[in-house]
């Protein structure tokens, strides 16, 4: 386990006052805010910053950290001495900046252990914390449902009361009909409970892997379909690949580029199901052979078509 220099993470001196720590934290919280930040790894950085603030803004935790961390450099291998936290009491409660599922091994070792011990000693019984994460799935998974393996890292407590980070793989069955931004819940997959209380839950926020073929709004799906000029002009029955498989679509005669065809209830399933919109895009064959050039020249001569008549030219 590597030592984490929380002072370095917040960019403050070891002698920083509580006010300086708060200012530094707020500045970084703004810089790495996951909903706003353009920084790469903003979410990961925000977790580190939250963790550092959780320790340094709490006088008890900061004092304990200062004592145990004396002489360590960032990244150096670290093991806390046995009973290092004797004499400290971590009350916790209220707002906690760190979801234990997000906590580093280093934080869990130091403060997970002390927190669990404190809570057990008072015969306190409570439900474990819920964890939150994001899961990226394909749009097709929302149509058919899917099973995904995910690896969870969760702090656990052994028989001696020591906290360790345990990795376990679970298969998640994602029901069909989920939308981007929606949460799904895995009961009992959060932090273990205290004093015999039930475990917390794991919430996963659904995101679709970006796919240039599709644009999704709630349960409606938009797909651009290239068609030939003669299919658009004369009408045609064409085969289109959609997220739910290939379908035969009738293109009405005299369709223009941008025409929207709606396939009812072929969007993401649900109550009500979304619709699938096909946006026609007329693809011109290149005039790169003598025969092709002649066909275009014939059209130019015979059709007398001015697409800019509304511009008055």
């Amino acid at each position: 386990m590597q030592f984490r220099d929380y002072y370095q993470i917040l960019g403050v001196a070891k002698t920083a006052t509580a006010d300086e720590i708060k200012k530094a934290y707020r500045k970084l919280a703004r810089k790495y805010h996951p909903d706003v930040s353009k920084e790469p790894d903003a979410e990961k950085k925000m977790k580190e910053v939250n963790e550092a603030n959780e320790v340094l803004s709490d006088p008890e935790k900061r004092a304990a950290y200062d004592q145990v961390g004396q002489g360590y450099r960032p990244g150096q291998d670290f093991q806390p001495p046995p009973n290092w936290d004797a004499g400290f009491e971590f009350s916790g409660g209220g707002f906690s900046g760190v979801d234990m599922g997000d906590a580093s091994d280093f934080f869990s070792q130091l403060f997970g252990q002390a927190g669990a011990r404190g809570k057990r000693s008072s015969h306190y019984q409570s439900r474990g914390e819920d964890h939150h994460a994001k899961i990226v799935i394909e749009l097709q998974d929302a149509y058919a449902g899917a099973t995904r393996s995910i690896t969870l890292q969760a702090p656990d407590v052994d028989a001696q009361g020591r906290v360790f980070t345990k990795e376990h793989v679970i298969n998640v069955r994602i029901p069909k009909g989920v939308k981007a931004g929606q949460h799904i819940r895995l009961n009992g997959q959060g932090s273990p409970g205290f004093g015999g209380g039930p475990a917390g839950d794991l919430y996963l926020e659904i995101q679709f892997r970006p796919d240039a073929r599709y644009r999704v709004e709630e349960r409606d799906v938009y797909e651009t379909v290239p068609v030939t000029p003669w299919e658009a002009a004369l009408g045609a029955s064409i085969e289109v690949a959609t997220p739910s498989g290939n379908v035969q679509v009738k293109i009405p005669a005299n369709s223009q580029s941008g025409r929207k065809l709606r396939l009812k209830a072929r969007g993401i399933p649900g109550e009500p199901a979304g619709d699938l919109y096909l946006l026609l895009e007329i693809a011109l064959p290149p005039a790169d052979t003598e025969a092709a050039r002649q066909l275009y020249e014939t059209m130019a001569r015979e059709l007398a078509f001015n697409p800019r008549s509304k511009m008055g030219v």
Binding site: S96, D130, I170, R173, I184, R185, Q189, D201
Partner: peptide, 23 residues
């Protein structure tokens, strides 16, 4: 182990669940 996820919306959260989930 396979766990079937519950879609929040199919089942909406009650006050206790929402509060717990947000800490």
């Amino acid at each position: 182990m396979t766990i079937t996820a519950i879609v929040i919306d199919d089942l909406q959260l009650d006050l206790a669940d929402l509060a717990h989930s947000c800490g």
